[in-house]
Design a protein around this nucleic acid. Sequence first.
DNA 1: TATTTTTACTAACACGTGTTAGCAAGGACA
DNA 2: TGTCCTTGCTAACACGTGTTAGTAAAAATA
Lengths: 346, 346
Amino acid sequence: MPTARRATSFDVAKMAGVSRTTVSFVLNDVKGFNISLETRQKVLEAAERLGYVPDASAQALVSRRTRALGLVMTRSPHYISTDAFLPRIIAGLMDVVKERKLRLLIESVDMEHQDRAYLELARAKHIDGMLLLTPRIDDVGLRKLEQVDMPTVIMGELVGTNLYSVDIDNCLAAKKGVQYLLQLGHRQIACITNAPPSYSAAADRVSGYKEALTSAGIAPDDSLIRYADFDPQSGYKQMKSLLAQKQKFTAIFIASDNVAMGAFAALHETGIRVPEDISVLGFDDIPWAEYSNPPLTTIRLNAQELARKACFVLTDLLEGKDVPQKRQILDTELVIRKSCASLTNS
Amino acid sequence: MPTARRATSFDVAKMAGVSRTTVSFVLNDVKGFNISLETRQKVLEAAERLGYVPDASAQALVSRRTRALGLVMTRSPHYISTDAFLPRIIAGLMDVVKERKLRLLIESVDMEHQDRAYLELARAKHIDGMLLLTPRIDDVGLRKLEQVDMPTVIMGELVGTNLYSVDIDNCLAAKKGVQYLLQLGHRQIACITNAPPSYSAAADRVSGYKEALTSAGIAPDDSLIRYADFDPQSGYKQMKSLLAQKQKFTAIFIASDNVAMGAFAALHETGIRVPEDISVLGFDDIPWAEYSNPPLTTIRLNAQELARKACFVLTDLLEGKDVPQKRQILDTELVIRKSCASLTNS
DNA sequence: TATTTTTACTAACACGTGTTAGCAAGGACA
DNA sequence: TGTCCTTGCTAACACGTGTTAGTAAAAATA
């Protein structure tokens, strides 16, 4: 006896003694057709007994909708593995995706095959819409995306495109954070970014940092700025580099908690106390920020909410709803813990 | 002028002046049919010019393969968001998936709808195979999975099933770790788990902890054991609970670095120094372990490699290759940093 | 009774692909 | 000349579903 094959809608029809069309009408609850209660129940019962589940590929083929969204990251596996952000993004997306009975596909696009990758993903119609995570300013293939007919929402920003996006105001958030440091009396404030300047979020956070300084009558000093590369390791390295030079500073704005973790280690290792010797301000509020030593004062970015919002925009677009705002901005919040202290004049 | 429709293989055939069958033969490089070089080139050129990409749904329908793997987690969104493990798992999977030209689907199954969820996922044929992450011992729906015909590989362990799995020896790893603490002279050693005892990994790590103690002639004391719940917060709470009681200890084995982060905070807050007052041993070696204060001595679990291995097993199964070993065990490694010190007799 | 309307369905096509079976033309061989 | 084989292709079916157009029977209306 061979293993029982998967039941198709034909099997259900046969068992219920009706046509396949009727089965489809009943199970999809199609309006405008009169199906007797008796028939309806026969169909439902047969479907239940056979454990019938419609074939997703067949449905996708005929309806031209896969009911799947794609989370696309322009990153290499190494950067994915150390991304403290990703779990919350996924949790947020999963939340909405489950509610709307969709599925989530994860895709990473490496720099070399950008242009082809996006097009093929769209053309093969694996997904109905795309959610883009941290695109680079110089992402060439991305611009081709506007040509292809695929709804896309960016979590972050891509200047010069007209795609939908959900983001925070990186510049303003950084500015407010640095203003807090200024308010504590700090005048020599260093900065380590979250990423290379080709990432727009990194560039914007540096802008905010500089704006705050300028507003306070302090000339930004490029020798106090370092560019990290997402992971703690790069934070460690850049902090070491800052400490090695003559230029002194009493506070530092590190535009990523993940990077800050590495920087903390460099400070501890050098015997510098936080916040007594140097105040540290982070960015993101990753789950571990609260538990670092000392607990990290940081700018909270609600990643889960950002993902949820982006996902809502995308699903609304797919359902044909009108989404008036091309760009939505989420609020950030300064979370004051123990890594920043007011500057006691020495 | 309407937007140009997606090109189908029919369009390619028309442009090349051949039949659709020929197009299929050429593009899929089917052996055993003689296609002239001239025709072959005409087809390839037409496909290129039209930007033809085969429709994934149609291919899936006819070939009965979606070329997608599913990463399935039995967790609620909250636990996903604080999972320090997930990025490395995803990075590992992505690595293999890209190489084998597959796609990755992420699915979370909540406890209530377990039984239906697995079946529907399998029956709808969204995916060709499943990768299961940290299943619970009491995962009822999972056992039904053996009935349905879907290749499955577990990252972790599920006792009492015959499914393929890739895992570490949790018991042995924990035992070796605790033996290191014993070797440093500690006799009163507490334990905080990574998860509730219904998770097999948690249960096994506790077993290893107890075995080490017993082997050293020390009777395990249940009042020194606490069960955490994946996140740092639970670690903080359980450490507080341990510190609040009379029972003293000079070292603690915390079966998850993520949980250990919270426990560290509780220790710092109470003014207890690590490792001078209490030695702390972690488990997992998450990216942040190296950068904590002090750097965490821990048992390394190579999550990315585990994911890669699991993915290889699954893809081999899908390609019909014979996989002799039902259960593969990865090595772990004790990474000695600065959070454990030898006990100086007071 | 003859005609229209309503009820409760079904036949048949479309979606875009992979694949089996077959066909025409041309050369090789008896 | 007739048969067989090779070369180079194509017609047609299958995959499992959603949906439009249509139909037979019953009920309502004229």
